[in-house]
Design a protein around this nucleic acid. Structure first.
Length: 289
DNA sequence: AACCGCAACAACCGCAAAGGG
DNA sequence: TCCCTTTGCGGTTGTTGCGGT
């Protein structure tokens, strides 16, 4: 793993939220050169970040195949089930959830599912998470847990649910998890548009199936930047989408705005993606196309 | 209208494993 | 075999927006 050729001089790395320009630089670099030595990426890509940060940014937000938005019923069940079996092995759990990152799974668990499971354990007779899970999985409507009382009314729900069930079939190869049950309607279904679009969303369904303004701050959505007219290189689209975001909303744009930009402006040139995929080394690179 | 608390999520930090020299 | 560096992972923190008061 050591990569002495990648050594770089010590420098003051930037921290905090990624700017659109940084995202673009990183993306451009990876798309052009593929994945290699992360520690060399910042210098070569012209970023004042450390390799670790670049890697994280790529894996969690920029890499192709990511699925954003709310977790489906099936995904929830998988997380609960696997968490019960594996513990906090987020990377392993994420492997069973195509398009989801370990960070996303972890966040989802910590911010929502954990409470739900604990609440269920507290309210009813204490059950093991596995028991809870099996109930939830086999009989969603009968679960002791309040199904999908999602708190996604907040920003992430502004765009809605991911409706990406098409990616959920045959999750496990070892039989631990069978094919997902037929889709169950749930409370937040009213919000059907995928929340965020990242690389996985370059392909159809058609952009008109969602509303850009649904997942953008109103001020941004109305700024005219959400639908870049460039239509050219991906980078252009990105910069266009990030564009004139008001200060503190840049943060959201870092992950979400980019997605909106892509989705709202057409689709990325997939020409070279095969090469890119070939270089992926992340544990949960279940890339989907 | 202002303030406060909560929820969600992005990102950082530290540690351990992996691998090359 | 040891040392050093990179990578990967999990825990934690920080920031932001929303809803309630």
């Amino acid at each position: 793993m050591g990569c002495r050729s990648c050594e770089k001089p010590k420098m003051n790395y930037r921290k905090g939220l990624w700017s659109p320009e940084e995202d673009q630089r990183l993306r451009d670099y990876i798309l052009k050169h593929g994945l290699g030595c992360w520690s060399a990426v910042p210098a070569k890509a012209g970023l004042q970040r450390n390799g670790k940060s670049c890697r994280l940014r790529w894996i969690n937000y920029l890499r192709p195949g990511l699925k954003r938005g709310m977790f489906s019923q099936e995904e929830e069940d998988v997380v609960i089930n696997l968490q019960a079996k594996l513990g906090n092995k987020w990377s392993q759990i994420a492997m069973h959830l195509p398009g989801r990152t370990d960070n996303e799974v972890k966040n989802y668990w910590n911010s929502y599912l954990k409470k739900r499971v604990m609440q269920a354990q507290g309210v009813s007779n204490p059950k093991s998470p596995a028991e809870l899970t099996s109930m939830s999985t086999t009989e969603p409507g009968m679960s002791t847990m309040p199904i999908h009382h999602h708190h996604h009314h907040v920003k992430n729900s502004s765009g809605s649910t991911t409706t990406s069930h098409d990616q959920d079939a045959n999750i496990s190869s070892n039989g631990a998890l069978s094919a997902p049950a037929p889709l169950q309607p749930f409370d937040h279904q009213a919000q059907q548009q995928p929340k965020n679009f990242v690389f996985s969303d370059w392909a159809p369904p058609a952009p008109e199936s969602y509303s850009v303004s649904a997942h953008w701050p109103a001020s941004t959505a109305s700024s005219g930047n959400v639908t870049p007219s460039h239509g050219g290189a991906f980078g252009d689209q990105m910069s266009g989408s990030y564009g004139a975001l008001p200060t503190h909303q840049d943060h959201q744009a870092g992950g979400h705005g980019a997605a909106a930009g892509i989705a709202g402006s057409g689709y990325f040139d997939l020409l070279n993606m095969g090469d890119i995929y070939g270089g992926f080394s992340s544990t949960n690179d279940d890339l989907l196309f």
